[in-house]
């Protein structure tokens, strides 16, 4: 797959791979290219808006765990992250099931990316997606256990009543509930299914609840109003 400058491309991430739809000049006709990563569950694909060349793909490789693939040449070639998002090792610790959302960092910080995961986690890369580390400001937040501990009998068909959604719920609920803005330092925003919106205005170091008692949050999108 190769994307030319000036084209409009639609990145279609599917349960069985990644397809690219390329539009003609007037966007009336579309060619379908792919798949790449045939057989992999591709959760999100994003072109870096800062250089318009780097592509990141969040994939779950069948039964073989989650990873990130990177392309620095618009999809001609791909490299797997040498250190994909992973929780720290600890007794009873959790394992990343999949990355549901990728977000680029600020325009002044080329190579910085954020990855939202299920189970609930936020990871940051500073080298274009090759290595990832947990965002401790979120993972060490005093409220973090409230979001992540699921009590027995607390579930609904769409996930738990409180806290971030359980495994499958991320597919339908929180895929669009992570967003970043264009400020410097970068703002990162998360919607929680218990009806809270959490914001960090320092790239994930510190977090505050900016809205609560909302209904089940489905999506959060940061918009820059002129």
């Amino acid at each position: 797959m190769e994307i030319e400058t000036g084209e409009v491309a639609l990145f279609v991430s599917t349960k069985k791979g990644f397809w690219c739809l390329r539009g003609d000049a007037d966007r009336r006709s579309w060619s379908v290219e792919g798949p790449d990563f045939l057989g992999h569950i591709v959760n999100h694909t994003l072109l870096d808006p800062r250089d318009r060349h780097t592509l990141l793909v969040a994939a779950r490789t069948g039964h073989l765990g989650p990873t990130i693939f990177r392309s620095s040449d618009r999809g001609k070639s791909w490299q797997e992250a040498s250190q994909p998002p992973a929780f720290p090792k600890q007794e009873g610790g959790r394992a990343v099931h999949h990355v549901f959302c990728l977000q680029p960092g600020h325009a002044s910080q080329p190579g910085v990316w954020y990855a939202g995961t299920s189970p609930e986690g936020l990871f940051r890369s500073e080298d274009g997606g090759d290595t990832w580390a947990p965002v401790s400001g979120l993972h060490d937040h005093p409220r973090y256990p409230d979001w992540t501990v699921l009590e027995e009998g607390d579930g609904t068909p769409d996930g738990p009543i409180r806290g971030l959604p359980s495994d499958q719920a991320w597919y339908t609920v929180l895929r669009q509930a992570m967003s970043t803005d264009a400020h410097d330092p970068l703002g990162v925003y998360l919607g929680v299914t218990c009806g809270e919106v959490w914001a960090s205005i320092d790239e994930g170091e510190a977090w505050s609840c900016v809205a609560s008692h909302l209904p089940f949050v489905l999506a959060v999108e940061a918009a820059e109003l002129g």
Partner: peptide, 17 residues
Amino acid sequence: GIRFRIVDEQDRLRPHV
């Protein structure tokens, strides 16, 4: 990279391996 496909970050064999 092959280890992380077989074993997760908690040193557990992945469920379907």
